[in-house]
Each structure stands twice: as C-alpha cells, then as structure tokens.
Computed example of a mutant assay.
Amino acid sequence: MTVEVPMRWADMDAYGHINNVNLVRMMEEARIAAFGVPGGTGRPGAEPAVDLFTSVPADTQTLVVEHRVRYVRPLDYRNVPAPIDVWVSAVKAASFDLSYTFRDPVDGHECVRATTTLAFYSTAAERLLRIPAERRAALREFLGDPLFS
C-alpha cells in the first residue's frame, strides 16, 4: 500500500536532500500509518489501513530489530508529502520484515529502498516471542499481495 509522509523543512540537510536519519523517521511514520500504533504506546488516532500492531496483548511490545536502507538517489526536500510504498516482505518464526520504497513526490523516481525487521517482546517473560499462528497468518495475508508491492 502507499502512504504519504510529510517532509519537514528540518528534515533537509545542507544539500537540500532529506537527511538519512530523517528517512528512518519517515519509515516509522509510514509503518504506523499503514499498520497501526503499537499496542501500549499511546492512543491510536486514525485507523490504519491494516491493524497488525494495535491488537497485541498488553504485555507485548513491538520492537525494531534492524533497519536496512539503500539510497538509490537523493530524496530532495519538497513541500509536499513523500509517497512511500510499504508491505510485508518476510515472515519468520519470531520476526517479520516490512519493506519500503520512497518515491520523489514530483517526478516519481525511486529514491530509497529499505527494510525493517520487527519482533514481538514479552515484558512479563523478558524475552522475544514466537509469532502466534494467527498473527503469522495475518502477516502472510499481505506477503506478496500486489496491493502491497
């Protein structure tokens, strides 16, 4: 699915590009817009397109394990939101990947390809959790779906 994430003036570096640190922030905003606010982290606003995070048990956190970012070309600051395609790209026993493609909002060129690996963590047991079968099935429902690629 495609979500639009605002580019802020402060996101820009000295070259007029969106700074790499701010691209990771934009990944987070795209992830939340697409899949919901992680449970226990505040109050959700707008309904996400697909709720993968809000409905986790109260003692479960959704943690970022790793980010991988490939810069294809600079994403220039524009005074309009950047379209970001975000989708489930892998589902494993205890983690899953979300992938992103950033496009320039004016000319449509691909600028950034990225992936975030996430895992569920039990605060009560103090350990990573295997993804329950029903949540794995929900994640796989969007794996390879043309709407999410």
Rank of each mutant, 00 (worst) to 15 (best):
V37A: 05
G16I: 02
T62D: 03
E28S: 09
V24Y: 04
M12S: 13
A34Q: 15
T54V: 04
F53E: 05
P44F: 10
V21D: 08
E29Y: 08
M12Y: 03
W9A: 09
G42T: 10
V64D: 03
D59M: 02
E29D: 15
D13H: 09
A46V: 07
E66F: 04
V37F: 09
T41H: 12
N22P: 00
M27E: 13
S55I: 05
V50R: 05
T60R: 05
A30Q: 10
A58F: 02
M7I: 12
D51A: 14
L52H: 03
A30I: 13
V24K: 04
P57T: 03
M27V: 11
T41W: 09
P48M: 10
L52V: 06
S55G: 14
Y15Q: 13
L52W: 03
A46F: 04
N22W: 00
V64A: 10
V24S: 09
M12D: 00
I18R: 02
P38E: 11
D59F: 00
G45R: 14
A33I: 03
T60C: 09
M7E: 00
M7W: 01
A49H: 10
W9N: 04
S55P: 01
R31I: 12
V65F: 06
R43P: 01
L52C: 02
N22E: 01
T54A: 10
Q61H: 11
V56W: 07
R8Q: 07
E29K: 05
E28K: 08
F35G: 05
A33R: 15
M26Y: 03
E47G: 05
V21Q: 10
A33P: 02
N19R: 04
D51L: 07
A14Y: 09
V24M: 13
M12N: 07
G42V: 13
W9P: 00
F53R: 09
P6M: 01
G40P: 05
A58L: 02
G36M: 12
R43C: 03
A14M: 12
V50H: 02
I32F: 06
G42M: 12
T41C: 13
D51M: 06
